[in-house]
């Protein structure tokens, strides 16, 4: 019963949106060239699934995202840890990072293409740039949030540096680190599509551009929805991991 109610809570809005969309198309209020009927979109979705086209493009984009994201996670966490733990290192890199941070990843693209060509490297690099800063900033923030009362406790108990790092700083900064990873993953998806829109021969972004140029708005919508679904699935995966690792924290879920 509770499950059913929760399902209704989650389902009514998407169902209503699709219903309105269908109704508008069915009544002929919108040109199918601008917005094809959901029936057409679903049909071409199955078509692309059947002939393996969608899977191919997804695999290409997913590989790029995972490569760029993994690089950003490794570098963001290690550099963030170094900044958070060493004031000298923090000061040394602060101005450089502050200057680079506001540059939108796509702004780098022309330069990156100049360096690496339009191959995989440049796309992975753009994704890396997009995911890197949110991860870095949140890791540093997590370390900075270490409770001074726990520092005192460690002094009273003569806790060594390594033990303090592994028992206090790392678990304490995990929630913030996961926030960074989730935001970074979101940016990674944004960046892969943007990069593929500009120059690519495969990938979801390419699928979308190609569909527009060949007048297939239904395929275009399949591409857009796929991006949304994939992003959600990956975020849900990270959230699951987050929940498993950080059981001690009770999140506020709104309401009373």
């Amino acid at each position: 019963m509770r499950f059913a109610r929760s399902l209704i809570h989650r389902l009514w809005l998407p169902v209503a949106l699709v219903a309105i969309w269908f109704l508008f198309s069915w009544l002929g209020l919108i040109s199918p060239l601008l917005l094809p009927s959901p029936v057409d979109v679903v049909r071409s979705g199955f078509e692309l699934l059947g002939n393996g086209e969608l899977a191919r493009h997804v695999a290409v984009s997913l590989t790029r995202v995972l490569q760029g994201f993994a690089l950003a996670a490794v570098l963001g966490i290690s550099l963030g840890a170094a900044i958070g733990l060493s004031p000298a290192f923090d000061k040394s890199v602060d101005w450089v990072l502050q200057t680079l941070k506001p540059i939108p990843p796509i702004g780098w693209f022309p330069l990156v293409v100049l360096w690496f060509g339009i191959g995989e490297v440049s796309k992975v690099f753009i994704i890396f740039l997009g995911a890197f800063f949110p991860i870095l900033i949140n890791v540093v923030d997590g370390i900075r949030q270490t409770d001074h009362r726990h520092v005192e406790l460690a002094r009273v108990h003569e806790i060594g540096w390594w033990r303090f790092l592994t028992w206090v700083i790392i678990p304490g900064s995990l929630p913030s680190t996961f926030t960074g990873l989730r935001i970074g993953m979101g940016f990674a998806w944004t960046c892969v599509v943007a990069a593929e829109l500009i120059a690519a021969e495969a990938g979801i972004g390419y699928l979308i551009v190609d569909a527009r140029q060949t007048f297939h708005p239904d395929v275009l919508l399949v591409g857009i929805l796929t991006i949304g679904i994939l992003g959600t699935v990956m975020d849900a995966g990270l959230r699951q991991l987050d929940r498993r690792l950080i059981r001690w924290k009770q999140p506020f879920r709104g309401g009373a």
Partner: peptide, 16 residues
Amino acid sequence: LDRGVVFQEHRLLPWL
């Protein structure tokens, strides 16, 4: 370690 301290708040590490 020759002086133990019990703080005003329990000051336990929440993740342990």
